Simulated assay, not measured.
Amino acid sequence: MKSVIYTAVAAVALAAVAAPAAANAQSFTGPFVGVQGGWEENDVRNPGTALGVTPLAQTSDTGTLGVFMGYDHEVYPRIVVGAQAEVNFPISSRFGNGLAAISPKRSVDLSLRAGYLVTPKTLAYVRGGYSNTLVGANIGNLHSSDDRDGWLLGGGVERKLTDKVSARLEYRYTDFSEGNGKFDRHQIMAGVAYRF
């Protein structure tokens, strides 16, 4: 898992260094960093964990906060593609039924996006990629903590506020399900990015 994260971060950094300075004249070309936050809903039904099947069927809502970095490139007039790495943390994540509980902790997302410039300053896009979340599980007095791999898919809109600052709003669906168990996540995230 760590090697995948390091490789993705290195690729984003290399692309940023290799980009010609002239490319920054385009509104959505170049490296960026940012912060984001929003709403998160976890929906589980008997998810498999290191303890085995966790007898829990419940939905839980919480807030989430995170940071991201990435690189975009306008490959054709009005067509933008990019890559992004991020880490997000739920604000209050533990939920359960008295017998069993689940505690999503941090999540790491590596994704690609493709978008269309509706106006020179407004990008509508779709996003897809890999997600990994650290999850604690309790059944009675037993506790485990393990990583779950999944995939994410979503879309949103990003708007340039100044030459260097943009704001975005997006929806994401992430599936961490394994075997017959269910572990889905829905998010609505708002973010602000600084573009170099």
Rank of each mutant, 00 (worst) to 15 (best):
G48L: 10
K105N: 14
L123V: 03
P90H: 06
M189I: 15
V67N: 05
P47M: 02
V53Q: 05
K164S: 14
R78F: 03
R113K: 12
L117V: 03
G150M: 07
P31V: 04
A21G: 13
M189V: 14
N42P: 00
R45D: 15
A19F: 06
R106H: 12
A16P: 12
G156F: 07
L142A: 13
A21E: 14
G128E: 03
F32W: 10
A19T: 15
I91G: 11
T119P: 02
A8Y: 10
D146N: 13
W39D: 00
P90Y: 06
F95R: 09
S166T: 12
S93H: 06
G136C: 09
T29R: 01
T29C: 04
R94F: 07
V108C: 00
I91D: 11
V4P: 00
E158A: 13
E178T: 14
G140Q: 08
L142V: 02
L152S: 12
G82Y: 06
S103L: 07
M189L: 15
A167M: 14
V165N: 05
A15P: 06
V17L: 15
R127F: 01
H73N: 14
D175P: 02
M69W: 01
G34H: 05
T174S: 14
G128R: 04
N97A: 12
L142K: 06
G155N: 09
N42L: 00
T64F: 07
S103H: 10
A23K: 09
V12I: 15
D61C: 00
P20V: 09
Q26R: 15
D163A: 15
R78H: 13
R168T: 04
L134T: 11
A22I: 04
I91R: 09
G63P: 04
G34E: 03
F28G: 05
I188V: 15
G82F: 06
L112Y: 04
A15S: 15
Y71C: 00
Y194A: 03
L14R: 09
N88I: 03
Y130P: 02
G63Y: 08
E86H: 01
Q187P: 01
T62R: 10
I79Q: 02
V75G: 07
L51Q: 02
V17Y: 13
V81G: 10
N42K: 00
A23Y: 11
L112A: 13
P90S: 08
A101G: 06
R148V: 08
Y116S: 05
R127W: 01
L169E: 03
P120V: 05
E158P: 02
A10C: 11
S111T: 09
G140V: 04
L112M: 09
L123E: 02
L56F: 07
A50C: 02
A124L: 11
I91E: 11
G154R: 05
K121G: 08
S166G: 06
P90L: 05
V118W: 11
D184P: 01
A16S: 15
L123D: 01
D149G: 14
A83I: 11
G70L: 09
V44D: 00
I5S: 05
K164G: 02
F32C: 01
A10F: 12
G129Q: 04
T64S: 13
F89H: 10
E178S: 12
S60M: 00
G52N: 06
